[in-house]
């Protein structure tokens, strides 16, 4: 499946001047972080080595944050977010609470002098589970404040279940 072109613009403030610009064609995933092996390398102390992955998801994009610093849209912190194509253009998010801002630019033209990266489809064998990654992701989410508070309030959230008579 051909994914639409996506541009990213680095900003110092949400409506600031563009500092740097990337454009990607038909990429299933765009990796953003401080390490130089990312697709979008942002050299800033507030950015994690691996910070956020953008995965093409239908006609939208899924943002999966792999840094505990999160991303911020306004005052809200997100660890996962699906962006509908209608919300894509001009969407601005911040890398961490104090990091730089990135703006998405769905109609981006390839920037002059930059190479447009092509999509290398890697062929995974069917249904392989990475147990280490699974454990890490589950641990990270379950350690979160929201998950813990949810777990503590299960009895109140599901009163019906505790009232149900036990199965004979």
């Amino acid at each position: 499946m051909e994914n639409p072109r996506l541009g990213l613009v680095l900003l110092d403030s949400p409506d600031g001047a563009p500092r740097q610009h990337w454009s990607f064609d038909a990429r299933p995933v765009i990796r953003i972080g401080r390490s130089t092996d990312n697709d979008v390398v942002v050299a800033d102390q507030h950015v994690s080595r691996d910070h956020v992955f953008l995965t093409a998801d239908g006609d939208g994009w899924l943002l999966t944050v792999v840094s505990p610093q999160g991303i911020y849209c306004g005052p809200r912190k997100f660890l996962s977010l699906r962006l509908d194509p209608r919300a894509l253009e001009g969407f601005v998010f911040r890398l961490g609470a104090k990091g730089p801002f990135l703006r998405l630019d769905a109609q981006a033209e390839p920037a002059c002098g930059e190479s447009t990266l092509a999509h290398d489809r890697d062929q995974h064998p069917l249904l392989v589970l990475d147990a280490d990654r699974l454990r890490d992701e589950v641990e990270e989410i379950s350690r979160g404040d929201y998950f813990r508070s949810l777990k503590e309030s299960l009895g109140r959230l599901r009163p019906s279940r505790s009232e149900d008579p036990a199965e004979p």
């Binding site: 995974h124 249904l127 392989v128 589970l129 699974l134 992701e137 589950v138 379950s142 777990k151 299960l154």
Partner: peptide
């Protein structure tokens, strides 16, 4: 879908759901 990325991701949800009883 029968797809490794779906399989991996769904496994995360399954485990979280188990923890949420």
């Amino acid at each position: 879908r029968p797809d490794s990325q779906d399989f991996q991701g769904t496994a995360v949800t399954v485990e979280l759901a188990r923890r949420l009883e």
